[in-house]
């Protein structure tokens, strides 16, 4: 039987762990509320900009734009929005599983977050781990990042597409559904016409312009307008995806830490019981010894 001192020591260490996980849970909860509010506030904008973007096809705007051109996809660039820190349950694992299913040897990657950066070199679609050759850039963003900061990332993606280095750009991130549910999601980003609506809205009633083949009027002239509208769509979708990923991260961490705290409490309970048993057993033995000794003397 273990001795009482060992058990006391273990109880103490588990208590310390519980304290830490409890603190992390509180921090994550606060951050989650903030991130969640931001992510949810951007949803209507994302839905609407996605809806408008999905209606814009070369046929209806009477002007082409490089960002609308669908090409046969040989090289695909994937933006992976991971987290900077671990201890957030299965969040990154689930996200990376999603990437595994889409990994091709020709794919290139851009990472946001240290975990994604560490994971991507281990992809092995071509048989052996790529060792980082498939990772062309990585970015780190703080939690309170602004649209201007995420624009750096999205501009990089746009440039890669426009220069012809890649034929399509996708984004893989964890969509925030509720504090308990986060879904790894992949969606097309560039070309814009191939992109599906970010937040799924109810199916659109067939718009008139599709029936009649009418063309959008535009102001300023179509080419110029698309030149500013399409990048704005991409910038915003990347921004919203990162917001979603952040909200997911903090919720996942909060839940993971809550579980950890509960597990620690469970262990403390078991250990305390064990400790009391040992203590009592030793008292009983001592008493027995004393009585036997007395009997022997008497």
């Amino acid at each position: 039987m273990a001795n009482t001192r060992d058990i006391r020591r273990r109880i103490k260490s588990v208590k310390n762990t519980a304290q830490i996980t409890k603190a992390m849970q509180m921090v994550a909860a606060t951050k989650m509320r903030r991130a969640q509010a931001r992510a949810v506030a951007g949803r209507p904008y994302a839905a609407l900009i996605g809806k408008v973007a999905s209606r814009i096809r070369p046929e209806v705007v009477d002007a082409g734009h490089p960002l609308l051109e669908t090409k046969p996809v040989k090289k695909r660039l994937i933006l992976v929005v991971g987290t900077d820190r671990g201890l957030c349950g299965g969040l990154n694992t689930n996200l990376f599983r999603e990437i595994h299913t889409r990994d091709r040897a020709e794919n290139l990657y851009v990472a946001i977050g240290r975990k994604a950066k560490a994971f991507l070199p281990r992809l092995r679609a071509s048989g052996v781990p790529t060792g980082g050759k498939n990772l062309i850039a990585d970015f780190e963003l703080k939690d309170n990042f602004t649209l201007a900061q995420s624009k750096v990332v999205s501009q990089f993606l746009i440039d890669k597409f426009l220069s012809g280095e890649v034929d399509a750009v996708d984004i893989v991130y964890t969509r925030f559904v509720t504090a308990l549910t986060q879904v790894p999601t992949a969606s097309g980003l560039v070309p814009v016409s191939a992109a599906e609506v970010l937040a799924k809205t109810a199916p659109e009633p067939v718009a008139k312009e599709e029936e009649g083949g009418a063309v959008y009027l535009s102001e300023p002239e179509a080419g110029e307008l698309l030149g500013s509208f399409l990048p704005a769509v991409i910038h915003f979708r990347v921004y919203q995806a990162i917001l979603d990923a952040r909200a997911s991260e903090h919720s996942a961490r909060m839940v993971a830490m809550k579980n950890a705290t509960e597990n620690a409490k469970e262990i403390i309970k078991d250990l305390t019981l064990e400790y009391n048993k040992v203590r009592q057993a030793s008292i009983t033995t001592e008493l027995l010894e004393i009585t036997t000794a007395q009997l022997a003397l008497g």
């Binding site: 705007v61 718009a207 009418a214 535009s218 179509a222 307008l225």
Partner: peptide, 16 residues
């Protein structure tokens, strides 16, 4: 490029 007045049944338009 100038103010736009929009009434119901306006032609499809995209504007900055």
């Amino acid at each position: 490029e100038g103010d736009l007045g929009i009434l119901p049944q306006h032609a499809p338009l995209l504007a900055a």
